[in-house]
Design a protein around this nucleic acid. Structure first.
Length: 433
RNA sequence: GGAGAGAUGGCAGAGUGGUUGAAUGCGGCGGUCUCGAAAACCGUUGUACGUUUAUAGCGUACCGGGGGUUCGAAUCCCCCUCUCUCCGCCA
């Protein structure tokens, strides 16, 4: 959420931002409502002031044993007027808030202005894509060949866009999670195990609601409605919702492993094969809460920490600086990490590292207080995948596949796989007796 | 699921419907004292919105959340949420 005052005083800038983001919105209406709201609020408040003073007088006169009938009657008129105005004020207030809540964040001056994802800027590239001397298979063929990935049965269980990992596949996925969490812990991140179902205020705090409800899965309970998290960013960032932190408590660096649930509405026909785009995937997320003057450094740090995982796994990738047309709703600046996929001969997103500035903090009421300073400040929030486990898994199957159909396990993961070095087709099932 | 208790400022804890943004204690901050510290003593101590050049003043709101009664609600009524205790169920 943008600051009301900022919007009021910088309409042209906000207008330009919306154009850069290719977002259409009725800003004039927002301005009108804001003006109406202030005008009406002023009227109501001065009436309340009158009423308050008269009420105090009643108390005083009554105490002295005087007759208060006439005064009460005259105050009653004021009260009636206030009551008549209140619903309108409330309505305007709600309308204004509803509009402000769907205004995206202002990209920073460093964020490239662009027309589409084609205008994203490559910042750096790491690793050399491997030269294969055989025909590469995609992760589905590799995984199903080893019987560690079973898309048809996933579809039987749940439908399209679900995965079923088996044997060493499930194990490799678990090893990835452990490897990532252990690495981040070493780098100073505090591990969080949050709820996977959250309420609406939580979804609103990070910006998923109200605008992107159709991207989410909702759980209709008997007496409570909850949403499945699309990323751990949601519960972890909201840990400090409506709290005033001490300056000394910042920055906070947290990591969390969770499954993520996304409806992928509007992605029909996109990445339909395999586990690239699915309704449920695992992810290890990095979240920072910082003071304003720390967030840019934290953004670089967070991105490097995510890159560290790819480097440790020796997966080639590049870092993209997302342009205004491609950057997320809550982000001021965003770096995407894209991993090399041999089957597609392309780099594909595996992490998205965003500096949300004070945008989420304002929505969620995440503030901090400095010593000797009056008032509070909004913190800055950042998040990034470190990494998407499903996509890391498939990147390993593709980049580490061998001509005989087996997959070499990256060295960094071997300690988490009992020293195992390759994934081979399963041996015979154990006998019962 | 059944029965009961509760939710007040950073914490603890008062609060007969009328100068209550809210006693008191602790904590925090500033000061006196001290070579320094502790103790003691004195002072101070929330958030948001509006107005304003102003983190000054002034105004309004906020005692879990939302409605209602009233000239006036932390205090009375209704609904919701959460916490705690006991019973039942359960990984």
């Amino acid at each position: 959420m943008l600051d009301r005052k900022f919007v009021r005083e910088n309409m042209a800038e906000v207008e330009q931002m919306l154009a850069n983001r290719k977002t259409k919105l009725d800003l004039a209406e927002l301005g009108r409502l804001d003006e109406q709201r202030r005008e009406l609020q002023h009227k109501v408040e001065s009436l309340r002031h009158e009423q308050k003073q008269a009420s105090e007088k009643i108390a005083q006169v009554k105490k002295e044993g005087g007759d208060v009938k006439a005064v009460i009657q005259s105050v009653g008129v004021i009260s009636e007027r206030i009551k008549a105005m209140e619903p309108e004020l409330k309505q305007i207030d709600e309308q204004y808030d509803a509009l402000l809540m769907v205004v995206p964040n202002m990209p920073g001056p460093e964020t490239p202005v662009g027309q589409s994802e084609a205008d994203n800027v490559e910042l750096r590239k790491w690793g050399e894509p491997r030269a294969f001397d055989f025909e590469v298979k995609d992760h589905v063929d590799v995984g199903e060949g080893l019987d560690i990935l079973d898309m048809p049965r996933a579809a039987k269980l749940s439908g399209a866009r679900f995965t079923l990992l088996k044997g060493d596949g499930a194990r490799l996925s678990r090893a990835l999670v452990n490897f990532m969490l252990e690495t981040h812990a070493k780098n100073g991140y505090r591990e969080i195990a949050p709820p996977f179902l959250v309420n609406s205020p939580t979804m609103t705090g990070t910006g998923q609601l109200p605008k992107f409800a159709e991207d989410l899965f909702k759980v209709d309970g008997k007496d409570k409605d909850l949403w499945l998290i699309p990323t751990a960013e949601v519960p972890v960032t909201n840990i400090f919702r409506d709290e005033i932190l001490d300056e000394g408590d910042l920055p906070k660096a947290m990591c969390a492993f969770t499954p993520c649930f996304r409806s992928e509405a509007g992605a029909y026909g996109k990445d339909t094969r395999g586990m690239i785009r699915v309704h449920q995937f695992d992810k290890v997320e990095l979240v920072w809460i910082t003071k304003p003057d720390e967030s840019e450094a934290a953004h670089e740090r967070l991105t490097r920490d995510a890159e560290g995982i790819l480097q440790a796994l020796n997966l080639p990738y590049r870092v993209m600086d997302l342009c205004t047309a491609d950057i997320g709703f809550s982000a001021r600046r965003c770096y995407d990490l894209e991993v090399w996929l041999p089957s597609q001969q392309a780099y594909r997103e595996i992490s998205s590292c965003s500096n949300c500035w004070d945008f989420q903090a304002r929505r969620a009421g995440i503030r901090y207080k400095s010593k000797g300073q009056k008032g509070t400040n909004f913190a800055h929030t950042l998040n990034g995948s470190g990494l998407a486990v499903g996509r890391t898994f498939l990147a390993i199957l593709e980049n580490y596949q061998n001509a005989d159909g087996t997959v070499t396990i990256p060295e960094a993961l071997r300690p988490y796989m009992g020293g195992q070095e390759t994934i081979e087709p399963p041996k015979a099932e154990p006998t019962v007796i």
